[in-house]
Amino acid sequence: MVIHKNIFKSIGFFLLVMFIVLFSLFPFLQMLSTSLKHSWDWGNPSLIPAQVNTSAYKELLNIGQDEKDLPESVRILLEETPDLTEAQKESIIAKFKDSGDIFPFMKYFRNSLAFATTAAFISLIIAIFGAYSISRMKYRGQKLIQRGVLFVYMVGGILLLIPLYKISVAIGLAGTEQGTVVSLLIIYMVQTLPVSLYMLGNTFRSIPFSIEEAAFVEGYTRIQTIWKIIIPLSLGALATVFVYSFMIAWNEYLFASVFLKSFKDLFTLPIALKALFVSKNAIWDRIMAASMLTAIPVVILFMLVQKYLAGNMSSGGVKE
């Protein structure tokens, strides 16, 4: 009787786990499948490609690609423009061939990585000090800041879009590549700081005061305690906050689409993917392969840190 019950329980549990796994995975299976199909196979509902086709990945990663042919119309155009010097013609042709990449994945990947890590890192540093201040120190307005900070999320992204773009144009940031990078980084910080402050504040509050007091007795200053006591004791929470901020910047679409529009060299993966999607040819294998490649790095990053995530989020979401 008891054994029976246990077996049913185990099977039920197993099915539940399977369901959770499948539910999490199905879009990725779809993605993988379509990315490996030939275009004549897209109409088949089967997940298994009739014939595996890796050309989309090769194309995106620029493996074994032939040099782009010069179209007839471009060749004639240059030939029939007599005022051009040979050198000018050559440089135009060279530039054309250079632009051959349909989707320079590695470039977009580097951009995304750069944006996300920088934003997450700066945001983390600012949040450590801010969270320490609101959770451990006493001054007028401290309670107000502590509670008010999450209210920032009530302001939706659309509301911010036009005014923020306007400011960054007005102070001359949006005109240059560097300025655009700075504007976007600051915007990502605004979106991540509230949760960072909130989660870190809660973590810091859970560290016993006595440890810190002991440090003060030893002659540590506030700043020193932060570096030597608080940070080492909350590495797990710091990692969580970092990853959380990283994700926001890595995934962000709306602001990037407006701010980066003029700077193709700065495109992040999300806007590059969208641009690929709206280009009119039916290119599902390429879109899916690009989606796969966009997802993989974050997935690996997570696999590396996830061990520390769950256990160490400790009081991440706990109030007081």
Partner: peptide, 25 residues
Amino acid sequence: WLVRSIILLPYVAPVISVVFAWQFF
């Protein structure tokens, strides 16, 4: 440990990369 990693995938994958798969599905 493996299941724990797998179920984080939806959260970490960029929205734009998964919507196409949903639409296809």
